[in-house]
Each structure stands twice: as structure tokens, then as C-alpha cells.
Amino acid sequence: MSAILPPAATNWWKESIGKQELIFIVLALVWSLFMFFFMIYWHINGRQNLSNEKYKTTAAMFSAKAEQMVKQYQVRTETETQIPVVKPPVGSDVYLIARMWNWWPILELEAGKPYKLHISSMDLLHGFSLQPVNINIEVVPGYEHVIKLTPEKAGIYSLVCNEFCGIGHHTMLGRIYVK
């Protein structure tokens, strides 16, 4: 007569379901389906969807593209380690390297303008965590992820690494300027 004993009736699958139980199941089912279709709806009408554009790459291939961009659009350097600050044209392909333990280079973007941000890792997994906007994306070595991004508001933004990448993980802080 209880859940730790065999069911009392051998044909338990014919028992009727209580009304309240049934109402709850129907409500839960409707909500489940709603949530499923809401993700699809957001792909059609939402403005925040992670891009599906990606390519297999290697550390050498990707860093060559990033260095090419830096050479072309560098405007100055910052910090003691002379990290280049790059101001790429609006709408262009912007390359961002993640590696132990820095983001390279520093980007300077225009508010309200779209960019195609290419991200990849040179070594381990890293986590692209843009703060305080709070957009979080996994950075996987061997993959070049192309993300369309429109920085909305001017300000100084930080890139935190939020995937564990070794002892210097907490020092891996990058910068994006939006003007």
C-alpha cells in the first residue's frame, strides 16, 4: 500500500488520475511547451542571440589575423607591458586573443555601431565575461567564434576570464573602450 511495496492493484495503469493532479500536470505541460517555444521566438524577435558562425582554426592562424589587425589599426599602447590599443573601423572584423593570462589587444569601439568580434584561445579554455554588461561566452582553443556585437553605451568595460585557466587566472583582465 505504499511506494516501497508493489502496487496494490496489478492493473495500476488503469487507475484514474485525481482531478487536482491532472490540472497541475496540464499547467506544468503548458508552461514547459511555452518555455520551449519562447527560446525559438527569441531567435526570431530577440536581439540577444549567440552567433552560430564559427570556424576551426589553430593558434598560429588566428594570431596571424589578430596581429595583422593590430598592425593596421593600432592607435596607442597602454600599461607597462605596452598592450596595443586598436581602433578598428565600424562593422569590421575585430580579433581578440585569449591566452594565459591576458586578453589581447585592447579594443576601442564606437557606441551604437555593430562589429564582428572574432574570439579564440591560444592555449586552454577561457571565459569571455564582459563586465559590467554581463555577457558570458566560452572561448575554446581550435575554434574561432564570430560574434556580432553592438556596444550600446560609452564607457570603460572589463573582460574577466571566467573559465579556470591555471594559477594566474585571476589576473586575466582585459579592456574594451566604447566611445
Binding site: E80, G127, P132, S158, V160, T171, L173
Partner: peptide, 21 residues
């Protein structure tokens, strides 16, 4: 609010920049 998991230092000691949560 964005705070990372598996992260030793919210103050980012030793990083080239500062970010204040």
C-alpha cells in the same frame, strides 16, 4: 551581478587593469 565561479580573487590582484565589482 557577473561574479565568476572558480576564481580566486575578486580584486584581480596583479592584473594590468582594475575592475571593481
Amino acid at each position: 551581478l557577473g561574479v565568476s565561479r572558480r576564481h580566486w580573487d575578486m580584486a584581480f590582484a596583479g592584473a594590468p587593469f582594475q575592475y571593481e565589482w
